[in-house]
Design a protein around this nucleic acid. Sequence first.
DNA 1: ATCAATGATTCCTA
DNA 2: TAGGAATCATTGAT
Length: 360
Amino acid sequence: MDEQPRLMHSHTGVGMAGHPGLPQHMQEGTGGTDGDGRKQDIGDILQQIMTITDQSLDEAQARKHALNCHRMKPALFNVLCEIKEKTVLSIRGAQEEEPPDPQLMRLDNMLLAEGVSGPEKGGGSAAAAAAAAASGGVGADNSAEHSDYRAKLSQIRQIYHTELEKYEQACNEFTTHVMNLLREQSRTRPISPKEIERMVNIIHRKFSSIQMQLKQSTCEAVMILRSRFLDARRKRRNFNKQATEILNEYFYSHLSNPYPSEEAKEELAKKCAITVAQVSNWFGNKRIRYKKNIGKFQEEANMYAARTAVNAANASSHGSQANSPSTPNSLHPVTTVCYTTMKTEILGCFCKLSPYFGGV
DNA sequence: ATCAATGATTCCTA
DNA sequence: TAGGAATCATTGAT
């Protein structure tokens, strides 16, 4: 079994200076009687090879054995390998150095980024954290979903690695099998180690496409998991009472112009422990819903106006009496509410009209 | 089970 | 690109 490679290797590196395609030892002394004898030998062998298929199975078997034992066999074998190498294989050679598949690289990168391939790092906690941040930033509320995400990702990771192991095992088994087969074949056919190596590469490429499918489906599974996790945004939580109050307070105290600036939004977001986007959503919803049904919100408006008035009164009684024209603090609370609401509305009118007055 | 409230999303416009 | 409008999807009270 291992005899053949040794036979073939025993002649590698033999000079080709004389006759292209013939190893040096077959070209030495071609002018002498010894050379003629070798030529005769080669002719005999070739003749025997050419006619081997015309013979019965037993005869052919015997002839093959005889040929294998022939003293010129290794040299002839080398020549055939070299010729084959020069013709068929050199044509294929050009196509072999393929650049790494960009699609495969993308898949690899993604699997690495999601924590599926590569070292275990808490089941892609970075991706989960990013998704959690995108889903509203209320970290504690998401911990259950977070761990669920991690558990599912770890499941995917496990399946991926199991499949990958199976794939590698199958690839190795098949490669070994083919290599053995080719080595066996190389006793009777001109198959060089280079060609075996090439065949191994072809097998690896074929298996690599299977591997790519595995990676593809793993990526899809991760994407689905991720999108489901991100869709948890839809499973909204109502803002807590305090946050709603802060937002309402701002809204009703700026009723004339309920459009917080970017800084104000950031401030509100910080106070309410929500994101700026959520603040924007809230104001968007509030404005449109208030506008659609002012009557319904009147009570709420009054309540917050009263609260603002009380706050203002408290503030002014604490030393800033000069802040005129604040709400007169001697008025009855109900009157105060009306006063504050009116003031807000009037100021709102001024704000709307301000472009016509050159800014008020 | 039903329904109003409400946060999020999508599409459109200025 | 921010905001308006319509709509979706979920929550929570009944």
